[in-house]
Amino acid sequence: MDYKAIFIDLDGTLLSHFKRISQTSVKAIKAAQKRGILVVINSGRTPYEIERILRKSSLYLPYIALNGAYVRIMNEKKAIYKKHMGYDLCKEMLHISEKYKNNSFWYTARYSYAYHLQRFSWLSKYAVLQYLYEHAMLLSRRFIKSNHLKAELLAGNIGVYKCGFMSADKGKLAAIRKEIDGLGRFETALTAPVFLECNLRGVTKGSGLKKMMQYYNMSAEEAIAIGDSENDIPMLQSAGLGIAMENASDKVKQAAGLLADTNARNGVAKVIHQYFL
């Protein structure tokens, strides 16, 4: 197959453990672009976070943000596609957050808002803070009082694309996921042991890949996708070739056709060299 595009996840895939894109990967991406290859970032992060990361490495790439809810060509004024959750679904998720007395996060194009309903134990704080550090959420979080956030969400004043539930209690997180899945209106993915992400039904990294390829008049079969987390599975299954990182979970590896080296050993750069350079 003559592949013409590659879709790349950020955390655990392109980014190192220090949340940077290595110079080896930057050079490989730029070399692929010079050969006319479409290089796209496909991440659960906000557009603001993605652009901030790319600009640090002088990369200007099309990207899919918020697990497929926001598709954009970098530096263009308007998004190709965006899909908010809407008032009714935000209300349902708020109800679940309050029912389980569990902290939740609400993502817009720029900010992630925290709705705090529970204090963490010291052990839980360690697991949660580790997740926040690894995903650099502290860089784009906006803190407002929980009662104010609820009022803003219910008034429809915040355009939410994705929400998430954070807990070090795996049993509680599993119960929350089961209830949300039972509604039949959301996509869910456990992107870390302490974090559950939720999007509208039909909004995934896979749907984002298809929309981007349609925009460039190409088929999904002409794309390679590479990732490491549960939310990457729809992307891996939608592409012509899905590749899981060596550091991915077993569930992700089973969904992929091939394995790449780890993010610590420039797995993405090696895939680009193998298929495009």
Score class of each variant (00 low, 15 high):
207 S>E: 10
81 Y>I: 00
32 A>Q: 04
209 L>W: 01
181 D>R: 07
4 K>F: 07
230 E>F: 13
189 A>N: 12
258 L>H: 05
188 T>M: 04
276 F>E: 06
230 E>C: 15
104 S>Y: 00
33 Q>S: 04
13 T>V: 10
4 K>E: 04
46 T>N: 06
167 S>K: 02
134 E>N: 07
272 I>G: 09
266 N>S: 14
69 A>S: 13
98 E>N: 04
151 A>Y: 09
231 N>P: 15
130 Q>F: 00
166 M>H: 03
195 F>A: 08
256 A>M: 10
21 I>F: 09
52 R>V: 10
146 S>P: 14
119 R>C: 05
43 S>C: 09
263 N>L: 05
83 K>R: 12
28 A>E: 07
113 Y>F: 15
245 M>V: 13
139 L>F: 11
197 E>P: 09
35 R>L: 10
189 A>P: 14
11 D>S: 11
97 S>G: 08
70 Y>C: 12
259 L>N: 07
169 D>S: 09
75 N>K: 10
13 T>W: 03
255 A>G: 13
126 Y>F: 09
120 F>S: 06
64 I>Y: 01
50 I>N: 07
23 Q>E: 10
168 A>T: 07
28 A>G: 03
233 I>V: 15
246 E>K: 15
242 G>D: 09
202 G>Q: 13
57 S>M: 05
112 S>L: 07
34 K>D: 15
171 G>P: 14
242 G>M: 13
82 K>F: 10
190 L>V: 11
52 R>P: 01
57 S>C: 11
188 T>I: 11
37 I>N: 03
191 T>P: 07
172 K>Q: 11
270 K>G: 03
272 I>D: 06
227 G>M: 11
147 N>M: 10
76 E>F: 00
7 F>S: 01
256 A>W: 02
39 V>M: 03
116 H>S: 04
199 N>D: 11
96 I>A: 02
196 L>N: 06
75 N>I: 04
110 R>T: 15
121 S>W: 01
118 Q>I: 01
178 K>G: 00
157 N>I: 08
14 L>W: 00
128 V>L: 02
183 L>P: 02
221 E>S: 15
128 V>H: 00
106 W>T: 03
232 D>E: 08
28 A>H: 03
9 D>T: 12
31 A>D: 11
